[in-house]
Design a protein around this nucleic acid. Structure first.
Lengths: 360, 360
DNA sequence: GTGAAAGCGCTAACAA
DNA sequence: TTGTTAGCGCTTTCAC
């Protein structure tokens, strides 16, 4: 039950095949010149012995681990980063790379520590979703020892790396214009912001780039639709479902309660759904809503929620491709990729002009 | 812009500190005896140089990579495995281990390949969610070269490893009994099964252990509630939302349409929600439902869905703990951990006896 | 076409 | 307490 299986190594294969380690290595890694017969023979022996190359030793030799490090906030109520993780892992696998995954829980210290561990493990490159607040010296070239890095989903102040983000602005603006075009005049915006203590209606400083895009989109949309400034009510809320719900309630209890609520992500949507349920409001009937990020749930809920959909799989694939390119050709040139988003119109915004669903 | 930063190594630190590599190593890794002053001095130099130990080289020396391999089906509509991934990564991090994540997409070949890659990377241990069909020789000790392995969420035929599963049977049975106690007599069961071509009402062979638990739970519950056999209608469906929906429609169009539908996972739930919406059925009013696996969406949907909740974080933590234990003490003893589940009663099952919600 | 030998960065006997 | 040295498993000049 407990007898250790001997682990076949290259020397073992070489010995069994009656050749030198060098020849065995050449035969198995397919470099240099080896006699066709020798190669086949070595290969056969290796298979028989169940030889698996020791990637650690290989890495030591040529300084490449074929491993990527992913530092991500893992918020599992947020399908976005789960999809991103999967897409990154899959894209890497296609190129023969494995991925070491670390969570930061939006905590700067955890991010720094994760990067260090990944560097110790000699990852060939890093994909980081930077935490929204604090300073990121640990992501600069000196700290990184030339390890290529790309930023995913957001930019980080002062970090000069390629970034992979989405154009949330355009579709968020479109969402507002769409709602206004259907007759909505009282609009509520529920925006999740890291690092604030409580709900506030005044926009805090230091908001991360991705969220800023959404906020600006809303403003642009409102301007384009020539909405008066006081038509749009804001609630910026910290990361807590309860607090988010109180933000929704504030909105609904205001003198001009919104007929349409825009939520900055799925967590905020969940808060709206909870309060709506409590008050007997039905999405797509007496409350309209658009959120950022599609999900299987959003597709089904209330006949389908209208959403701003971000192409996360594509973004992930491009981020990995760029990282691999930089690993091959470390030219230090960084650029910003911004992928378009899409307003997916479904059933969650009521047509106030006729009292019917736009899509029915 | 492109000047390579020199990567400080142990020799560099030793040289700069004017000591031998051995002393430097002792000072930094804290083994053997070093003079307190020397240690402090070396440490200081190392910090100045920004020295980071090369974990690859360390791994070469003592044959431990401090890395775990996770082979998981990554189905991002299924929050369960995302939560599991996060919990595993976090638990490992707490013990100083990083995790290499691979997806199998429920594909045996991908699983085999992932395990090989992970073995090449010399992971200290493996956590595998085995794909539901096929034979798993690649998970046996000889193939694994003594690398400890634990199975997560399901058992795999012929693999003698510790398993970490949940007692779905008890809570699924309780769910049925609960529904019957509220007056439901026509019960539909929608069960997702891997590897079948189309919807069927007869139970296929070769169903994976976790799903069998749920099926048996339903049967036990029905028996305990002394329901006549024909009260329970089954639909086993493959992995496709459209096909699942047709399964739901078959149920609803049958001579005795169910008033209560039990779904084996969130994907099946989504199918029911889609059809219900299409037909104007409201969950918790004219259609009752219980599903397996809680989620933030289920908590909010329709005032809260009654679910069979599985303790995935706890399960993950225990699986990691056991794997680490086996890495420390490879005794080859395997055991099966089965954690209890819980029927979380919320609002999605109508009380047919009085026509009101049980919890209102 | 094949072998001998050096060495990637580190740690652990063994000496001193 | 500290230094010397060997070697983990592999690849890669350099000779032959």
């Amino acid at each position: 039950m407990n007898e250790p299986v001997s682990v076949p190594t290259l020397v073992g294969v070489a010995a069994a095949a009656g050749v030198s380690r060098a020849t065995a290595s050449r035969a198995l890694s397919g470099y240099g010149r080896v006699g066709a017969k020798t190669a086949a023979h070595v290969q056969k022996i290796a298979d028989e012995l169940g030889y698996i190359p020791n990637q650690t030793a290989q890495a030591m030799r040529h300084g490449r681990t074929k491993t990527l490090g992913l530092v991500i906030i893992s918020n599992f109520t947020n399908a976005y980063f789960d999809r991103a993780t999967k897409a990154i892992v899959d894209a890497a696998a296609e190129s023969g790379f494995q991925v070491l995954v670390s969570n930061t829980a939006e905590n700067l210290g955890a991010e720094r520590e994760a990067v260090t561990h990944l560097l110790e493990k000699q990852v060939d490159g890093l994909i980081v979703v930077p935490v929204p607040i604090g300073s990121h010296e640990h992501l600069l070239t000196p700290a990184l020892r030339n390890t290529p890095i790309v930023l995913f989903d957001r930019k980080a102040d002062g970090v000069n790396a390629s970034t992979f983000t989405t154009d949330d602005l355009t579709s968020c603006a479109a969402a507002i214009e769409y709602a206004v075009s259907l007759g909505h005049r009282d609009i509520g915006c529920l925006v999740r912001v890291a690092g604030i203590p409580a709900v506030t209606s005044v926009q805090p400083d230091g908001i991360i780039s991705s969220i800023m895009g959404r906020i600006n989109g809303i403003k642009h949309g409102a301007a384009a639709a020539t909405l008066p400034a006081n038509s749009v009510q804001w609630r910026f809320v910290p990361a807590s479902l309860e607090v988010a719900q109180s933000g929704v309630e504030q909105l609904l209890d205001s003198p001009h309660p919104p007929t349409f609520i825009f939520t900055s992500n799925n967590d905020m949507l969940l808060a709206v759904l909870a309060v709506a349920q409590k008050r007997g409001l039905v999405i797509g009937q007496n409350l309209s809503i658009v959120t950022v990020d599609d999900s299987p749930w959003a597709q089904v809920l209330g006949g389908g929620l209208t959403v701003v959909a971000r192409p996360v799989e594509k973004l992930a694939a491009e981020a990995v491709a760029e990282l691999l390119r930089q690993i091959e050709h470390p030219d230090g040139i960084s650029h910003d990729v911004v992928l378009p988003t899409e307003l997916l119109i479904r059933q969650s915004v009521v047509d106030l002009r006729h009292g019917i669903h736009p899509a029915s």
